[in-house]
Amino acid sequence: MNPSEPTPAISAEEFRKFRDFFYRKTGIHFEDTKRYFVDKRLIERIQATDSDNFRNYFVMLRFQASGEELQALINLMTVNETYFFREEYQFRCLVNSILPEIAQRKGRDEPIRIWSVPSSSGEEPYSLAIYLLEHWPRVDEYDIELVASDIDTSILEKARQGCYDKRAVSHLPEPLLRKYFSALPNVQYQISDDLRHSVEFTQVNITDLSQMRGYRDFDVVFCRNLLIYFDDTSRRVAAEALFNALRPGGFICLGHSESMSRITPLFKVRKFPEAIVYQKPR
């Protein structure tokens, strides 16, 4: 697209058309109030792909065999704002209440599997790793597998690199920052190689049943602030997928404004001193 050409505009009808398509592909629904957010990113991709207008771009998006453009758009449309030790009370709940209960019924040779989804740029799974190492006294008695997944491939790459700015680490106590990070130029911090190598990062769309087939036998799932982006139907599908991913008796932690009880009766509500979480019946 020539820079002198006017910026393409997205009509209300085109917005609706795109919204329906994006919902079918990802389960993510945009309310009318998100119009500006969506239009801005669509226009950015229309220009980046040298499409003349929305119509041409949409045809390419729908029929491109590689799906490369759809993935680029998903990466832009998903929100990745997070930081280390966000909603720390849930990590306290994990080490003080959830893991002791899980450990009670585990043999020493059985791994404890924890899944962070969506993992965004890695702050949550690395926070989990740090919290376990620092605050769970029995951490050395078990093999603990940490899997972290997101739909956004570019953010996963960032997570694997593990480099963060000052804002992302601002809630971390200074001794932990020194212990687990190395300082880089430009006030950046990189998480230690040991921790980077202890988390398995994978790409997944949790509303896609076929993609979810490899995700099984987790003891704990952290799925915070994802379901709020879904509509009712996608929430149901996601809840089924999370149910499938958990072992009987496994736990799921949602964001503080989310409630599994409003979505499905599949899980039991567990009120621990630190937090309310949900459990797959045993």
Binding site: P111, A129, L132, L133, V139, D140, E141, Y142, D143, I144, E145, L146, V147, S149, L195, H197, S198, V199, E200, T202, G214, Y215
Partner: peptide, 9 residues
Amino acid sequence: MSLVKKNHA
């Protein structure tokens, strides 16, 4: 033991 990395599937 402690943190170990394995293929998720």
